[in-house]
Structures are given as structure tokens and as C-alpha cells.
């Protein structure tokens, strides 16, 4: 009885492994997908193997996470202990495909991010105060072979584009009454000295 069960389980596991292998796509195939609201800004998605530098807005970071997450890829958030999980879920981020590493010792930052880009489509990371040029190149080299994208929350020496998020309008709150109902977030992308922008309505409707 036991033996027979074990045999059927083993064969079934083997079959599933085979299926899994068939379904797995090769890494570095194409770009990292983006949320439908951001398609205008990134018509071909985020470039794999590149670093984007994001300023000013956590919502913009969540919007960037939503794209690959909805496509079923894993994402990681490094060094952001104050991430609004509920807002992430509202943007359509799959919470069970997000790994959070809220606090990283400054000396380990590069190696942790390098390990994460190997397995996830997008890594959002708050950089340490100082990072040596040698570490930057090493990380870039790992990033290029991995087929993943890194979004740094702050300045980064060799970013392909700089993103700036700024709220331009809040609705629903007045002088002493009301409550926030929504607003508008302007996301600016500066790439090769050219700037383009898009206005996202908050809260986003999935």
C-alpha cells in the first residue's frame, strides 16, 4: 500500500518537473513588462540589465513593481523598511512574489542585490550612502548577465534614465474636513537629456 503510493508520487513528481522545465522560459528574453498605465512612458518596457534611478515617489516604485509582478515574475525590495504593503497590493503587485529585505548592512548591499537580480525580474533598492565605483561595475556586470532590471531609490552614477515622481494634485481634502479621494502623480523620465512625462491617476484602477 505504502510502496505503491510512494511510486505513484515519485512518478507524478517527475512528470511535474518535466512540465516545469518545458514551461520555463530562458532568462534575458526581452524587456521587463510595465504596468498598463506606464506603457506610454516605456513603450517597450524597462530595459533588462539596466539601472534606473528613481527620485521622490514611493508610489512610482510600486507602479514599476506591478508590471513584472503581474506577469508572474519575482521581484525584490531591498532597504525599504517602510514599504506600504497595502498600496502595493492596490497597484496590482502580487504579494506572494515579492521578497523584502528591509535592512541590509552597508557592506553587504552589493552582494545582496547581486544575488537578488539573479532570480527576480525587478529589484527596487535604496542604496547605501557610499558605494565604490568598483562595486558599481561589479553589480552592473552581474545585472547584464541576469536579464533583470534594478531601480535605485536615489542617485546612481550610471543610470540609463532618471525617473522623478511628483504629486501634482490631491482631491477630497479641504480645510478641516473631507478626506483624500485621489490625486495625480506626474512621473518624469529623463533619458539621454530628453524628458518625457505621464500623469497617473491615484488610486490606480486595475
Amino acid at each position: 500500500m505504502m510502496d505503491r503510493m510512494a511510486v505513484t508520487t515519485t512518478t507524478r513528481v517527475a512528470e511535474l518537473h518535466e512540465l516545469l522545465a518545458r514551461h520555463e522560459t530562458s532568462p534575458a528574453a526581452g524587456n521587463v513588462p510595465v504596468h498598463p498605465e506606464l506603457v506610454e512612458l516605456f513603450p517597450r518596457g524597462l530595459r533588462t540589465g539596466a539601472v534606473y534611478s528613481l527620485h521622490g515617489s514611493m508610489s512610482a516604485a510600486l507602479a514599476l513593481l506591478a508590471g513584472p509582478s503581474a506577469a508572474g515574475s519575482w521581484c525584490a525590495v531591498v532597504g525599504v523598511p517602510d514599504l506600504g504593503i497595502e498600496a502595493a497590493a492596490d497597484w496590482g503587485v502580487w504579494l506572494d512574489r515579492i521578497a523584502l529585505i528591509p535592512r541590509v548592512p552597508a557592506g553587504e548591499w552589493t552582494s545582496v542585490v547581486a544575488a537578488l537580480v539573479e532570480v527576480s525580474a525587478l529589484v527596487v533598492a535604496a542604496p547605501p550612502e557610499h558605494i565604490s565605483p568598483g562595486e558599481v561595475s561589479r553589480l552592473l556586470a552581474r545585472l547584464r548577465t541576469s536579464g533583470s532590471t534594478l531601480v535605485v531609490l536615489g542617485n546612481w552614477p550610471r543610470a540609463v534614465a532618471t525617473l522623478t515622481g511628483q504629486v501634482t494634485r490631491w482631491d477630497g481634502l479641504y480645510d478641516g474636513h473631507g478626506h483624500l479621494r485621489g490625486g495625480s502623480l506626474r512621473l518624469e523620465v529623463t533619458e539621454r537629456q530628453r524628458t518625457r512625462y505621464a500623469d497617473l491617476e491615484l488610486p490606480v484602477r486595475p
Binding site: I85, A99, I101, P102, E108, V112, A115, E118, V119, S120
Partner: peptide, 24 residues
């Protein structure tokens, strides 16, 4: 397996409470 392996390795290096998953 790849994700699991990478995250478990990180957890070894940084400590059990350092790699987290979340829900609402």
C-alpha cells in the same frame, strides 16, 4: 527552485528575520 535557493541563502547570511514575505 532558483528563487527559493537564492532567498534561503540570503537568509543564512543575513539572519532568519531579514528576508521577509508579506501580506495584508
Amino acid at each position: 527552485e532558483k528563487v527559493e535557493h537564492a532567498l534561503t541563502t540570503l537568509q543564512h547570511r543575513l539572519g532568519h528575520e531579514s528576508v521577509l514575505t508579506s501580506t495584508v
